[in-house]
Amino acid sequence: MARLLFFGKLADLAGAKAREEKLSDGAHKISDLINAIGLKDETLAAALREETVRFVVNEQIVSGDVPISDDDEVAFLPPVSGG
């Protein structure tokens, strides 16, 4: 099971800060994961596809649609606002 983490407004949309998602067999990228989420929740999937959303895989910020596996932790970050 991949562990998904949502932050900020994305957690509000997802209705939870974390959830688990079973990846089907075969090669997977983050976009496949978002498509799988979209089958159940198109609003959340659309928000995750926004250009300003960044991805973190296993605590490393990644750029673009990288490969992921079933035991990864994948976090979705909306625009930040510190300070």
Binding site: F7, G8, K9, L77, P78, V80, S81, G82, G83
Partner: peptide
């Protein structure tokens, strides 16, 4: 530091 904390550090503020 403040400019970057506001736009790059991983915080979300409600």
């Amino acid at each position: 530091l403040m400019d970057y904390l506001k736009t790059r550090a991983l915080f979300w503020k409600k």
